[in-house]
Write a protein that binds this DNA or RNA. Sequence first.
DNA 1: TCGAATATATAAC
DNA 2: GTTATATATTCGA
Length: 192
Amino acid sequence: MEEFRLSTLRSENTWFGCLVDSRDRLVASAFGPSSKIVQAHLISYSKQHLASSAVFGEYSLPREMARLHNGRTSSNPIRLNTDFVSDFQRRVYAVLEKIPKGRVTTYGSISKHLASAPRPVGGAVASNPWPLFVPCHRVVNFDLSVGNFSMCGSLGQSGTSTKRSLLEREGVHVRDDQIDRSAFWNPSGNKD
DNA sequence: TCGAATATATAAC
DNA sequence: GTTATATATTCGA
């Protein structure tokens, strides 16, 4: 039976957690205000998707996560375990990984690029198993307002505030909840 | 503002 | 299986 490992790290009042498989591929990540919330979320994810439960251990990925949270670029390529997401989600996440740091795109733009619709794109982005590693925080509303962001499964104003901070640390200029349109990035490339 | 339209995912029969 | 319900949306009246 395959063994999965979970580890957490605290950096500047935020807890980061990663769930990895036996080949060191990232199954899921999470971050939030307490280790309890982060661990509970990842354990819940593992119980829902994995046959065996996760064991705790030290691991380097949460450190990498903290760097990303700080607006830095990840030093090594991250291997993702995509076994537990749908084909449609994979297509959406492939687009997210192309959004340059310091830029944003919209649910509607992604949906046009994939010949889908905005709502399902929202659903896929919302269920991103790898926050920070796959930059779902770079997807905003059609009018370039910051929009929603959920942390460890909970949606609310603190999420939006966190999303805004992430974008600002990546160099996106936000004023009164509105993102400067120079930061817009079109996945279809017509107008980059 | 408010409601319809839209395509996925999940829950409920 | 098949049908309802819920979405981190968007657009038009």
